[in-house]
Write a protein that binds this DNA or RNA. Structure first.
Length: 520
DNA sequence: CTAGGGTTAG
């Protein structure tokens, strides 16, 4: 029964059952404890773990190797390496697993020196312990020592190679990583995911797509798995590569990933970010099991698309399904309120978050509230709110206010916001441009000119505006005011046509459908 | 019936 609970990640239930066992004076044997200790570890319950430790000693199992190793692992995970080491020292005979556990413990608490010291005196080191030591250096950012150790390693397996590969990418050494990858004679799906995921984590999304296409072409014997697809979907989201995203969707369905929660979540996010909320909803509805990220993705996606009502309906469904929202869920919910101008409702959701769910609001939540007020036109209240919040407002919040100042043509507050923004990010030209646009809207051309001078004095040029569009089989970049583009004539002809179309009286922008609180 | 290693999502 304990194994059943523990194997299925029902750790609280494991503990409850174990305590029932104790209160009924049923004596545990040596097989009982590992499940219980693992549950303490997974629940990060140090206090409970200590109690179990005492019970182990009382029951006479102190010398059991399996139990000691479970305990070392538990203490290490909850951040009590000292206790872990005590257990290790108390072991009459330590095998390689015990050495591995204590070394992992030191690495986990970023004590690489002690980890290495123990590694050096470990008898009969195997590939696993070598790999753990190497990844320990990598997680400490010491790629040089990691590589040195790798070179000294006697029997390198493919995982060792993959560890080094991922290490180069995590430490942003792309050249070495690529070189290392190309020199690997044997590869598996983890190798490819190391490359693709490495690019994805570092925001190199064009490279993600390139590597993915290379994988399909060069390694047809190694099919992508769920992790591959998720990395590719992330890149599609960021690049707006809807066509490739749809291809991944079809691929996922054809290859048995239809009900994979990671892939499903990736698809929801991809469709939302690529502007296709209907497909995002369809994926959401087809998913048999949903986790927190599934709910958060669809709620955030709907809010982002201005479908605040639907976002709030889904949020209700989530609560009815007894799923516990977290801080990110509420970012979506508050954002939904903001985009519908539901000021009061936004505040009641904020209270729901802090009171009913005991979620400590973070800066993004305060930002949502300030934005909620500002977009609804309550500019003074927004400034007041910002000044009174328990966290110092950041540039994101002040620039949201500055944006609202433009909407409501409030110069006084705009100037205050810019002052704050100059303090917070003196080198961001976007802030000057925002205020300059407000002056421009109001025809205050001397002020526009004055700002232009002030901006020049900062010595920072605004990077050229850039947009991406998927063309045929790739993603093409467009730069604002680009005179050098080979298809310049054609592009500007279409662009001007679109501008005329937007201006024409027959064009229905759909603005009527927006709720109050918006001024265009 | 018990112990140690890698990638993925908001």
């Amino acid at each position: 029964m304990l194994k059943g609970y523990s194997d299925n990640e029902f750790y609280e239930e494991t503990m409850v059952l174990f305590n029932q066992m104790k209160s009924r004076d049923v004596r545990p044997n040596c097989f009982t404890f590992p499940f219980v200790i693992k549950s303490c570890k997974m629940l990060l319950a140090l206090g409970e773990g200590k109690k179990v430790h005492c019970f182990v000693i009382k029951s006479g199992f102190e010398m059991n190797r399996f139990i000691s190793i479970a305990m070392i692992d538990m203490y290490s995970t909850v951040g009590a390496v000292k206790l872990a080491h005590q257990v290790f020292d108390g072991m009459p005979e330590r095998n390689i697993v015990a050495w591995t556990a204590i070394i992992s413990g030191y690495i986990l608490s970023a004590d690489i020196k002690n980890a290495r010291r123990l590694f050096e005196i470990t008898p009969d080191r195997d590939v696993i312990i070598w790999n753990i030591m190497i990844s320990g250096y990598i997680s400490n950012g010491d790629m040089v020592t990691a590589r040195k150790l790798f070179n000294e390693m006697p029997n390198r397996d493919l995982m060792a190679f993959n560890t080094i590969l991922i290490g180069y990418f995590n430490n942003e050494n792309f050249e070495e990583g690529e070189k290392f990858f190309d020199e690997m004679t044997e590869k598996n799906v983890f190798s490819w995911n190391g490359l693709i995921g490495g690019y994805a984590r570092k925001g190199r999304f064009s490279e993600v797509l390139g590597a993915f296409k290379r994988m399909l072409k060069e390694s047809s014997d190694i099919p992508p798995n769920d992790a591959t697809l998720v990395s590719v979907l992330t890149a599609c989201s960021r690049l707006g590569a809807l066509a490739l995203g749809k291809w991944v969707h079809v691929y996922a369905v054809d290859n048995g990933y239809k009900q994979n929660i990671y892939v499903g979540n990736g698809l929801i996010d991809m469709y939302s970010k690529c502007g296709n909320i209907e497909n995002a909803i369809e994926v959401f509805n087809c998913m048999n099991s949903k986790d927190l990220i599934t709910w958060n993705s669809i709620i955030g996606g709907l809010a982002m698309h201005g479908r605040g009502n639907d976002a709030l309906i889904i949020f209700d469904q989530m609560r009815n399904a007894n799923k516990k929202p977290d801080g990110i869920t509420f970012v979506g919910v508050l954002c939904a309120c903001t985009h519908m101008g539901l000021t009061e409702k936004g505040f009641s959701y904020f209270n729901l978050m802090t009171e009913d769910y005991s979620i400590v609001p973070e800066i993004e939540h305060f930002g949502c509230m300030a934005d909620l007020l500002a977009r609804a036109g309550f500019l003074n209240e927004a400034v007041d709110y910002i000044r009174k919040m328990p966290i110092q407002a950041d540039a994101v919040i002040w620039s949201a206010l500055l944006g609202a100042c433009r909407t409501y043509r409030n110069i006084q507050l705009a100037e205050i916001a810019l002052e704050k923004l100059i303090e917070l990010e003196p080198k961001n030209p976007a802030n000057y441009i925002m205020l300059s646009n407000i002056y421009k809207d109001m025809g205050r051309w001397e002020d526009v000119a004055r700002l232009k001078v002030a901006m020049k004095e900062t010595g920072v040029r605004k990077p050229t505006g850039c947009s991406l569009i998927e063309v045929n089989d790739g993603v093409t970049e467009f730069y604002s005011l680009d005179e050098k583009h080979p298809q310049r004539e054609e592009i500007y002809r279409v662009l001007n046509g679109l501008v005329e179309l937007l201006k024409s009286p027959s064009y229905d922008s759909g603005i009527d459908e927006l709720e109050e609180g918006y001024v265009y």
